[in-house]
Nucleic acid binder design. Structure first.
Lengths: 235, 235
DNA sequence: ATGCCGCAAAGTGTCAACATTTAATTTGCA
DNA sequence: TGCAAATTAAATGTTGACACTTTGCGGCAT
């Protein structure tokens, strides 16, 4: 069966050269079950931009590429469907969820409610040391972006597993897809850094309501900013 | 719902007698695919209490009972897993998610953020007529409970499909499970009715921030109430 | 009697073949 | 030539059989 997958050359969008089979990828997590491996693989591809929003996922293609049967592929797809990362209707091809202006608006509205609450919870749950480290990381992250993600860190440490999973396993994947699709504007980055610092500062003071309010305002401002970009590019 | 639930006599452990196949249930939605039917069936059983929280779901049993193969059953289970309604680890039996005090707290915290936002959005999106009807329904629902569900109605009409699906397709199922497990206290009902009326009133005035604030306070009060019940029953 | 090792039963994971549906192509007719 | 119905191709849905893992049980040695 190993020889069979090597002869696949045409794939969805990125033609895999012979010999660079996905099975050999070093960062592929050796999960217990194949379905788990397929799930992780698709998630990686979504995050890395190999699967663009709106692109169709062919079960048999994906199965051949990963050198597994269609069963595990289908199960992974159903889990992604439950997470609303891919959209399907019976008998039609599955598509990575498309990110039009309406969908982006919905995601940001959801983030405003959820991350606001997560910020308040993190305020109460995190230790003094963790908060101090957080403030330090935010301050030093001002010049070197991408080394520290305040939003993800808050979600990870809010003490509410349901909120954490929803943000990290669903919404942040979609956000990364969106950022890849329409790159974030550099003008907003300085603003965001300042707002991040304010949020972290309020958290260190254990001022939950203030931190929540700041986080919500921060996300709403980002929403308005992308709405402006959107309006400028469409006509 | 009474007629449907009365028909459920045999659950997980009782072997299905021939002739009492679920295939013949009249209210079973004639979906296109079998997996869809299985999904709907399990959802109904969770909502009706036939599947209690923490109970084990056996694939082959469920497949036999529904007269389908294991494939569709597995696919439905994976979708439920993606929705976090059932929990699984590889090779071990799947369980309906258990609702301990910690899980309930998480669900209510999530509701506070999401329903607060949904209320604000519904304020802006609903028509005057709809809002008038909403207020009327809330007023008349004071004496006859269960005829109108304000929370669900707001979620359905908030204009954000992602929030709507999350609330209606996941959290409200879990809430119904929890209410069945530890019945809601009648003392809280009168209070809740009053708070519902305040929320609807704020919505009719198109006062989004007020309506959101009232909804969040309403949910937080319910959280405290169930926390008190919880503390009283455990020791 | 107790603890460990191996075995057997039950349940989940995977596969390849078959059935059904959608869509695309082709063919026939106006 | 253009449209529409039939046909074919490709993808998804479903199935039963087989493989692997977990777990509980029973025998054996200490």
């Amino acid at each position: 069966m190993s020889a069979a997958s090597a002869k696949i050359v045409s794939t969805l969008d990125a033609p895999a050269q012979p010999g660079t089979d996905d099975r050999d990828r070093p960062d592929a997590v050796a999960s217990n079950t194949l379905a788990e491996r397929v799930l992780q693989d698709v998630l990686d591809r979504i995050a890395s931009g190999a699967f663009q929003p709106g692109s169709v996922i062919n079960e048999v293609d994906l199965a051949r590429r990963l050198a597994v049967s269609r069963g595990p592929v289908r199960e992974a797809m159903r889990r992604l469907e439950g997470r609303k990362l891919i959209a399907r209707s019976p008998f039609t091809k599955a598509r990575v969820v498309s990110l039009g202006p309406a969908e982006i608006r919905e995601i940001f509205e959801m983030r405003e409610g959820l991350e606001g609450m997560a910020t308040r919870l993190a305020c109460a749950h995190m230790s003094d040391d963790s908060l101090r480290a957080l403030v330090g990381a935010v301050e030093s992250a001002g010049q070197a972006p991408n080394v520290f993600d305040l939003h993800r860190h808050i979600a990870e440490n809010c003490g509410n597993r349901r909120i954490r999973d929803l943000l990290c396993d669903e919404l942040y994947y979609l956000l990364r897809m969106y950022r890849r699709q329409s790159g974030d504007s550099p003008g907003r980055r300085a603003e965001a850094s300042e707002e991040h610092w304010q949020i972290a500062s309020a958290m260190q003071q254990r001022n939950g309501p203030l931190a929540e309010s700041l986080m919500r305002a921060h996300i709403r401002r980002a929403t308005e900013h992308l709405a402006a970009i959107d309006a400028a590019s469409s006509p």
